[in-house]
Design a protein around this nucleic acid. Structure first.
Length: 434
RNA sequence: GUCCGGAUGGUGUAGUGGCCCAUCAUGAAGGCCUGUCGAGCCUUCGACCCGGGUUCGAAUCCCGGUCCGGGCGCCA
């Protein structure tokens, strides 16, 4: 029972005379007396249904013009090429069915004539997404995923899924959400990191995972959420330089895919996408500190993580994507491989957009003893990592990988103000519904 | 967590002690209108976050609370 033969975007003036069925929402009704225009909106755009009193008869005309905005309607009718109509065509209906009438008043204005606060929009997200510009961003996000999966597939990288329910907070650092798991305590996983490394020990050679991660941090910013989608990669017999190349190609490739395949959505968002040029600049952590000190008088100590101010200064002065490399070993996780000749710095890197960090990665420690040593140095207990460490005792290929935040990628690509604009149902410190 | 700002019809807003039984837009209800393009015109409807206080008088000032926004912090 598919109640449509076409989306609005599939109809054109050269289909003059053809019978079509459209289904969607009543976007607006403009009533001029003897003639009225019902604008039907679907995923692809709008179609004008022209209601002529004389042709429809009094009763049908009266019913049709009284349809409440945002009601779900099906229209059967004939395409008529008409220079006076938007997009050069209109539909002269033979049948109009209201499949579900919308109550009034609406919780927000889907025609985007009246502004709406983010909080109001999120409370009524189902209606917010009816707004074409909101929908466009999520369609583009889907295209980004399509591009990434296609790229990984071509590179012979295997898609995997690892558990989101885990036994212990073994990675240290970020806070985890505890959950009740039958008679045991469990947590929501903060990252697939340990699992994808174990899969290197399993000989899967190159894997990626796209899935949720959970962080119980009480941060409250426009770029953090407590549930996010992470794009994670791990490659055996590769080093940090190799996976940085994969990362920049994947990101630039996503831009280029969106530019080619999402023209309509970009048009709705009124933007032109500039595909970043490769290769991205590589800037060492030490050099970044020097730049910040020279030009902005920043007072960061070598060994501190970059504060927001420094990060923003670097972004503004570089003005495009860049990698921050050769970080102090002390501020990167235990699984990051230190340089052999200079162990105070390591083979960890961050991919930065001028506005924020998008990804971080590293060549990993694959030597069992070094890994145990590094875990102890970070003040963690190797016993808690036994499930992970076992995979390093029976032959572990050298490997490298990264994790990339999907919403941040989309947010920076589309210049969205808030990460919540890139997540359909965001979860933050306060919001658990819808 | 912390600092700063905010909360007015369904939605977005104006209003810093009396000019406010509250502005404008959008919307809704009704009416006129056969080519609208965010149609136009006429009539009507609909709101000061909660609790306490100051004052002759509070949307406006003060105190407490709740909620929201922005910055910073936190973010292996």
């Amino acid at each position: 029972m598919i109640l449509r033969t076409h989306y609005s975007g599939q109809i054109s003036a050269d289909m003059d005379g053809k019978e079509v069925m459209l289904a969607g929402f009543a976007h607006e009704i403009r009533d001029l007396g003897g003639i009225a225009f019902l604008v039907l909106r679907d995923r692809e755009g709008m179609a004008q249904i022209t209601l002529v009193k004389k042709l429809l008869g009094k009763d049908v005309f009266k019913m049709a013009r009284s349809i409440s905005r945002e009601s779900v309607v099906m229209v059967r009718g004939n395409v008529k090429a008409e220079a006076k109509a938007p997009r050069g065509y209109e539909i002269l209906p033979t049948e109009i069915q209201v499949l579900s009438a919308a109550q009034v008043p609406l919780p927000l204005d889907p025609t985007e004539k009246v502004e709406c606060e983010l909080d109001t929009r999120l409370d009524s997200r189902f209606m917010d997404i009816r707004r074409p510009s909101v929908l466009a961003a999520f369609e583009i996000e889907s295209a980004v995923l399509c591009s990434l999966r296609d790229y990984f597939h071509k590179k012979g990288i295997v898609e995997v899924f690892t558990p989101k329910i885990v036994a212990a907070a073994t990675e240290g650092g970020t806070d985890l959400f505890p959950i009740s798991y039958f008679e045991k305590e469990a947590f929501l996983n903060q990252s697939p990191q340990l699992y994808k490394q174990m899969l290197m020990g399993a000989g899967m050679d190159r894997v990626y995972e796209i899935g949720p991660i959970f962080r119980a941090e009480e941060h409250d910013t426009r770029r953090h959420l407590n549930e996010a989608i992470s794009i994670d990669l791990e490659v055996s017999f590769a080093d940090d330089k190799d996976v940085m190349e994969i990362l920049e190609e994947a990101v630039a490739g996503a831009y280029s895919y969106v530019a080619d395949n999402c023209r309509r959505q970009l048009g709705v968002l009124n933007m032109e996408l500039e595909v970043p040029r490769l290769p991205f600049k590589r800037i060492t952590y030490t050099r970044a500190l020097e730049l910040a000190e020279e030009k902005a008088g920043a007072r960061m100590q070598w060994g501190d993580d970059l504060d927001t101010e420094t990060e923003r200064f670097l972004g503004e002065s570089i003005g495009e994507h860049y990698f921050l490399i050769d970080w102090p070993s002390s501020i990167k996780p235990y699984y990051t491989l230190p340089y052999e000749d200079k162990p105070e710095i390591c083979r960890g890197f961050d991919l930065m957009h001028p506005r924020m960090e998008l990804a971080s990665g590293a060549q990993r420690v694959h030597d069992y003893s070094l890994l145990v040593e590094r875990i102890k140095e970070k003040g963690l207990d190797p016993d808690g990592f036994e499930f992970y460490l076992r995979a390093f005792r029976y032959g572990m290929p050298p490997h490298a990988g990264w994790g990339l935040g999907l919403s941040r990628l989309v947010m920076t690509m589309l210049n969205l103000e808030n990460i919540r604009d890139a997540v359909i149902f965001p979860r933050d410190r306060r919001r658990l519904v819808p």
